[in-house]
Design a protein around this nucleic acid. Structure first.
Lengths: 138, 138
DNA sequence: TATTGACATGAAGCGCGCTTCATAGTTTAT
DNA sequence: ATAAACTATGAAGCGCGCTTCATGTCAATA
């Protein structure tokens, strides 16, 4: 059993965020002490980590909420969850290819700059030419 | 030379976004016709594409702005731009490892669901166990 | 000539994901 | 017993990246 602060420390989220997630029903209702204080169980913590994993993948709160609803409904929603997760994977893959493309271009840029730094003629290049040069391969 | 609408079509951004980028100085001032209409040159379009590449990498507007400032100042800011670009690359790489981690777990989840669908016993599993199971490897 | 449609501008608005605030009750340490 | 630290809540606020709105000018068409 963990206090709000402890749960926050463990997960790396703020207590405010934890409350926010609970309000938004990303997390099941956390049980309370006799006087209203939250008591996070290990299962709660695991649950929160699952949410964090989804947020890492930039899955919007809304979608996580939908998924969690199905999850709580349980067994008969398995196929739907399966489909959702498949969608998430597709989305992550898209994000990754976008990032990969950006990374490739940016690395080219870096190489280009490195060359330029070596050459004392680098002062000649104008900002107009730069992008074209590293984009279309010097 | 392209009209606002054409530039929007080419880049896939809205005219509003193009104006926004111009206001925010991500793009140099676009030249105008005798009566205030924007005329995007090919260079402008390329420039916009560079911005798009940076946005793809989730580089915030602010940072792009900083970079563009240096770019316009030109040659003597080369080292600074080099450093910035290096920072961008690091950032992209971080994003990618995060996504990769999320992807791995999500794929495990998918496999787990697939198994579960095959087994008629899948109705037994509760939402509490699920995450643990696919996370710690059934 | 009247209308449609592209363009311009500044200001306001919006959805997202939190964070902060104001207020108040509880627990712990000194 | 008093102060410091932790907790709770609802509401408001915030930064980001656009988008929409209200208003008006200009251009080409029917």
């Amino acid at each position: 059993m963990y206090s709000a602060k402890e749960a926050a420390e463990i997960t790396g989220l703020s207590t405010a965020t934890l409350r926010y997630y609970e309000r938004e029903k990303l997390i099941p209702q956390i049980t309370r002490t006799y006087q209203k204080y939250r008591q996070y169980t290990d299962t709660d913590i695991e649950w929160i980590k699952m949410i964090q994993c989804m947020r890492m993948a930039n899955i919007p709160i809304r979608s996580i909420k939908q998924y969690v609803e199905l999850l709580i409904q349980g067994g008969k929603t398995l196929k739907q969850r399966y489909d959702m997760v498949q969608g998430h994977i597709k989305d992550i893959e898209n994000q990754m290819t976008n990032l990969q493309n950006a990374l490739n271009l940016t690395q080219k840029k870096l190489v280009f700059y490195r060359e330029l730094i070596k050459e004392p003629s680098y002062k000649e290049i104008t900002y107009m030419e730069e992008w074209k040069m590293f984009k279309h391969g010097n």
